[in-house]
């Protein structure tokens, strides 16, 4: 590989009190790769995703994004924990889309998209607006620019959330069950936007239960259970011909 991996995890662990949620995650995601994380609920896939942009702090192992340690700065043989400001700086170019959208309800769709470019990157308001309208058009919501989140359907809100993340020009996009809170007929629109992103070469890590999406769009699939990656590889292999019993049992239930 000529490029360093976009994400590299080595024996990442995370515990909440006595409960060990991640018991040792190893995973490598290359630039431009679309990786889907599958697994039963409680397997740690969402927790691991949240570790990647340091919304959760890891307790052990090491995690790099684009060659930089997540949450720490290394000098010699010491790891210095980063200050809140530095953590924020590194999060700028990692986009995240949440299961429950988490749009800012007091801002319009346009306001949601321009907020971070203006306040964080210092983009001029007019330039941010032009870019935001282009992004809203890309997700098929140009005419909803002035609507508040409360006036939008779940699928529309999630597409605005994707546009909001894209406005920061991320090098990596994290999707945390982006379609799980949607009515079935709205899932397609969101998945279409995600497919478009994948086609454009965006590096994406997607926690999902959409097997069709994983099979069709993903370059790699990782099956998590009990806080470890049980099995990983191309979707045809993992989904079509699983080697582990746990993967097989899970796929039998969801397919």
């Amino acid at each position: 590989m000529t490029h360093p991996p976009m994400v590299r995890a080595e024996a990442v662990t995370k515990r909440y009190g006595p409960i060990e949620v991640l018991t040792g995650i190893d995973l490598v995601v290359a630039p431009g790769e679309v990786a889907c994380l599958l697994g039963p609920s409680g397997s740690g896939k969402s927790t691991f995703l949240r570790c990647i942009n340091h919304l959760e702090r890891i307790d052990g192992g090491q995690l790099w994004v684009d060659g930089e340690l997540v949450g720490y700065r290394r000098s010699g043989d010491r790891l210095h924990e980063l200050k809140a400001r530095e953590v924020a700086r590194r999060r700028r170019d990692i986009g995240m889309v949440f299961q429950r959208f988490n749009l800012f309800p007091h801002l319009t769709a346009l306001g949601n998209v321009i907020e971070a470019p203006i306040r964080v990157l210092g983009t001029a308001r007019e330039a941010a607006r032009v870019e935001a309208l282009r992004l809203l058009e890309r997700v098929g919501l140009a005419e909803k620019a002035n609507a508040y989140p409360g006036q939008l359907s779940g699928g529309q809100q999630q597409r605005v959330a994707i546009a909001r993340a894209l406005a920061m020009h991320p090098k990596l996009m994290l999707f945390d069950e982006p379609t799980s809170a949607l009515d079935p007929e709205l899932v397609g629109d969101v998945l279409d936007v995600m497919k478009g992103l994948a086609t454009d070469g965006m590096t994406m890590i997607v926690v999902t239960h959409e097997m069709g999406f994983a099979r069709e769009v993903a370059d790699s699939v990782a099956f998590l259970d009990g806080g470890v990656v049980v099995e990983a590889g191309p979707p045809a292999e993992v989904l079509g011909n699983p080697r582990h019993d746990r993967t097989r049992a899970f796929l039998d239930k969801v397919l």
Binding site: L55, A88, R90, R91, M96, N102, L103, V120
Partner: peptide, 9 residues
Amino acid sequence: EAAAALGMS
């Protein structure tokens, strides 16, 4: 969380 993920301090 959403605001933090956008890199806001």
